[in-house]
Every structure is written in C-alpha cells, then in structure tokens.
Design a protein around this nucleic acid. Sequence first.
DNA 1: CTGAAAGCGCTTACAG
DNA 2: CTGAAAGCGCTTACAG
Lengths: 350, 350
Amino acid sequence: MLDVGPVRSPGYRATMKDVAALARVSLKTVSRVINDEPTVNPELVERVRRAASQLHYQPNFGASALRRRDGRSSTIGVLLEDLSNPFSATIYRAVEEMAIARGVSVLGGSFDEDPRREHELTSSMSRHRVDGVIIAPASRDHQYLRQEQMAGVPFVFIDRPPYLLEADTVLSDSRESSARAVKHLLSRGHRRIAFLGDLVTIHTAEERYLGYCDALIGAGLAVEDDLVVRNLRTIEAAQAVAGQLLDVGVPPTAFFAGQNLLTIGAVRAIRERALQLRVALVGFDDFLLADLLEPAVTVVAQDPVTIGREAAALLFARLDGDDRPSQKKIVETTFIARGSGEIPLLVGDN
Amino acid sequence: MLDVGPVRSPGYRATMKDVAALARVSLKTVSRVINDEPTVNPELVERVRRAASQLHYQPNFGASALRRRDGRSSTIGVLLEDLSNPFSATIYRAVEEMAIARGVSVLGGSFDEDPRREHELTSSMSRHRVDGVIIAPASRDHQYLRQEQMAGVPFVFIDRPPYLLEADTVLSDSRESSARAVKHLLSRGHRRIAFLGDLVTIHTAEERYLGYCDALIGAGLAVEDDLVVRNLRTIEAAQAVAGQLLDVGVPPTAFFAGQNLLTIGAVRAIRERALQLRVALVGFDDFLLADLLEPAVTVVAQDPVTIGREAAALLFARLDGDDRPSQKKIVETTFIARGSGEIPLLVGDN
DNA sequence: CTGAAAGCGCTTACAG
DNA sequence: CTGAAAGCGCTTACAG
C-alpha cells in the first residue's frame, strides 16, 4: 500500500470529546463551533477548527439528530417507479440538485409498481427517520402513511395522487393532453385509433385512457374494445400487441401509446411491417432520439425537471414551516409534432 | 380530511419505552423481540408484538447504530457521475436490488465530473456514517478517503480506478475493446478515422483514446491530431465538432465515439449532411433505439447490470468480513455490429 | 429467560 | 462567553 502520510489511531474515529481534549476546551464549546454558533471567542474557534481538522473529525449526523429538538436527519426519501427509467431518473436528479443546495442527502428507492415494495421502502424511510418523502406511489391506499405524516414527516406525491390521504401533489395534465393528442390524430382523418396503455391501477395510465375516450366520444365515435389494450409494461409486450392489432381483422390506422416504452414497442411493430409511412403514431412521454427515427415520433412531452423541482420546493417549504392546506400543482405538457403523428388517413385505408 | 381511524397522541412517535410500558415488560425485552433474539418467552413476544403494532412502533436506526458495537447504519452510498444517464442509472438499480435484499438503504449522489462535489458528497456520506460506498470518482486523488477506509468503511470503485489508494475496483476493458472497435473500422478499409472523446481527466475516456491509438499504430498508421477531438461532454458539442470535421479539409471516412452521448452527436452531424450511408460510425456504450436508426448503430456495449452487481457483491462481502487484498474485476464488453460500423471505405473517398 | 444500569455521540437546559 | 449535568432511543455488559 502506498504511504500517504501519518494516520493517527488507525480504525479509530474522532469524536467531539477527542476534539475537545486536543483543543483543551469543553465538549460544549466544540459543539458550538461545529454548529457555527456565533458566541464563541475567535481564538477558541481557531483552536477547535485546527484540532477537528487534525483529527479528521466528521460530526455524527445520527447522534446529533437523536438529541436535537427538531430531530432532523438531513435526509429525504425519493421513491419512484424505476430509477433506471429516464423519466424517473430526471425527476431524481432535479430533486437531488435542490437537496444538495440545502445540505440534505437523498435516500432513493424504486418500486416497480409493487405495492408491497412501496410498504417496505416507506417503512425503511421511517426507520431512517427521513425528514420528508417525495413519492410516486404504486399502491392506491395511502392511509398507512398517516402516522408518519402526523409525526411531522411531510409527503409530496408526484405523478400520481394520494388516495385516502391529504398531501401535497404534483401532476401532469395527463387526461387533457391525451385528449388533445388523439384529437390531433382525428383531425388527420383517422377513425380507427388504437390505444396502448400501462397497468390500469396506475393513475396516469387511467387518465390517459380517459383522455383517449374523451376525444373519441367528443368526435361522436365509439370506444372500440378491440382497439384498446392495457396492462402493458414493456417494449416487448407493446411490440407484440401492436403487431397483432396490425395483422388481424381490420387494423388500426393510428396508435396512441400511453408511455415511452409502449411508444417504442409500437415503433418496432410498425417498422417490422414497413408501415411507418402509413400508420400514424403519437406517444405520451418524450424520449431521446425520437427526432432521429424515420419518421420522427410525435409526442406529448412531460416536464420531469419541473415536476422534480416543484416537488422539492413544496417539500422544503413544509420543512421550513409552511402549514397551508395541501397544495396541488399541475405541470404543463408540450405537444411536439415531428412527423409520425401527422401521417393522414390514406385513401384505401378505412 | 378523511377520517381514517383512531390516531393516538397525534405528532407523537412511539419509542421502545412506550412499547415496554404497554406490554408491561422491560425495555430490554422489547429490544430482544425487535431484534429477533430467540431467548424470549413466546407469550412475551406476542405481547410485545401487539403493543408495537398498536403504537405503530418503528425502530430508530440512528439510535440503534449509535450504541451498537458494529455501528452499522444499514445504509450505503452510491456515488455516480450522473444518475440521469442510463449507464449510471442502470448501475444504481442493480446495486439497489442487492441492497434491498439485505435490508440496506441507498444514499445516491451525482458528481457531474466535479471533484469538489465528490468531496462534498463523500464527506456527507461520512457524516451519515454509511456502512460502505460504491463510487465512480470524478477526482484523480483519493488519499482523502483513507481515513474513512481506516475507520472500517469499504469503498468499491467502479468504471474508474482509485488513485493513491488501495480499494476494490470493477472496470470494463475499455482499452482493448476500443482497439477492437477501431480495428473493425480499419478492416473495412478506413484510414481516416476520427476520435471523439470525453474529458481527458476521465480514466475511461483516456483508455478509450489509448485503445484507438493502439489500433492505428498496430496498423502502421499515425495518430493524426486533426482527427482527434477530446473534452467533449454533450450531444451538442459532439455534433458541432463532428460537423466541422466533415465540412473542413480532408474529412474522416469513419468515426469512433467514446461515449453514448458523443455517438448520438455524431449520428446527428452525419445525418444533417445526409452522409449516413457513406460515413462509418462505431460508438462506445449501447443506447436505446440504436438498432432502429438507419443505419442501425454499431457499438461496444458495456454491461452496467453486471458492473453494479459485482460492485455490490464485493461491498457486501467486505461488510461480511472478507479481508482479502483489494480485488480488481474486469467486466467484458460486447461488440454489436448493426450496420453503421460495417460501411466500407467507398471508392473515391480517401 | 428477564431486567436495571451504564453509555454510544451529540444537544438541551441551565448555571456561572 | 464557557462549561458540567442530563438525556435523546437504543444496545451492551452484567446480575439475577
């Protein structure tokens, strides 16, 4: 091993007591210096600082939180569907930026739509005594969080609202922007528009489906069961289902996909059949390279950076004493026409 | 607010003491039950369980760690370049899976290649007394972690090796697989192969550059300065630089891009000039939809899931007492030929 | 098998 | 401005 300078008492971690002894002051004076209390003689401050640095002293957040009146752990929980999905990851980063600015650390977790895992992770957050939680829940009953909330831990729900619980919420306008997307397809002459959706238990998946229905009904059309497939979770599943729809019976002339992975699955199915210049497609959620495909993919883009920032802002406001009633923020989506959604109904198609 | 049942002492959090009082046993007996110690009368176990559940008791990890001999906080730190990059995010998820299986929570953090932020985040991890750290470092001097290491906190370096510190490491074979990729282009007749690279301070960026040099030199060619551009960080920067190379002087007939965002930048520049069937391209790192572009993009694919798993396995082995010398694991890459890398040198090009 | 006392590293509440 | 004592919620070490 390289010699990289002297190490005192290997394996030993300095405490405030050690710093106090070395600086020849009381424990309490060290505590004052570490916490930047102003009423300390500058000479003592200097001595304590030197001793702390010499001993590589790092304060123990856990011990401090234990005794502290507010009990703050300087930690928040961010619980999302899947941190490896770009939508979740972008939200996480946006929250992280704001947390770091406050000296707060982030405990992250992914549910994969498993309510049991939601319970485990929130319970784990509770045992870690996080100061607050930002959550995109998998379950549809959040009464079990009430105790934690009563104990003073603020919750901010994102992407999906709380059920049977009052809490701050940040959502996208899924239903309306879905209706707008489907109207866009209707305006190009399409009548047989298929819907690919995620789990029916997911609030946003339901909203997007309802937006699809709104648009059809608004145009005097019926929602046809054979054009609606839900509970799809992966690229592969969406690809298989879209393929079947295109192969069997009277195929759809356009698709509305309720989520980025499902959109990609639809792209694959359409491409496999060389129908990409014939079958229209609009997807919910933007994704990297959507503009480089041929045709480029028209999407309803959400704004995960704003969602993350708004959620963090609400959470930190609560931690700073904001006691207004529960807030509900709606973050705007953007419709981006790139080509795939502008393919008109072709003569000869139905 | 909805009424969701009785809540005892709103704002109050039950402690072991409260559970003990309700169950009419001593504090120590509650502690035994919570920690699943076997030597407790089943009847008392039952009484304690009921009391704990009735009071919604959640053990306080911080307090427990404070007194516990091993001082374990049941928390690890995972510090990566950028959690919103799919490569980092996939590693994070792989680690998270293994951590959850052990009941360990994950504190995540992103550096964005800022060594100062690396110092802040590792220091924050230290104050939180994490049990171990998985880190893809931004800095090139890790002596400052020695104290923490001596205090018993294992570090596993991923993607980049430690400098001036002994620690477990999990890397991809960047240099060799880069050389192989460039040889692939050479075998198609290309001689003017441009290299687009990330910050020269990043270990993997340097390795990939060296692999590029190895291949050229191995073929008896010189490394030409005007074909090498490094310190590129974004899609936009890579796109601009690749565009300039294509527009000015004697353009390259092939590109090797050292990172997923740079590959995408090169794709954009090539497409803008309608050269996608003429200019060859191989990228390091796979990315979603690489196979749906036209031509599909040939890549050297890393295996972030295995990197994450190996790193977590090493870390948890250390926490379980493994005291072998520092381990170094190399995770294999996969060359995926999809089309863009197989475009031959065309007659008339140089 | 059960419990009373001491102490982990820190902050609070108080006295000087 | 400084410090000695008590206590946060738990586990350790020990006695019964």
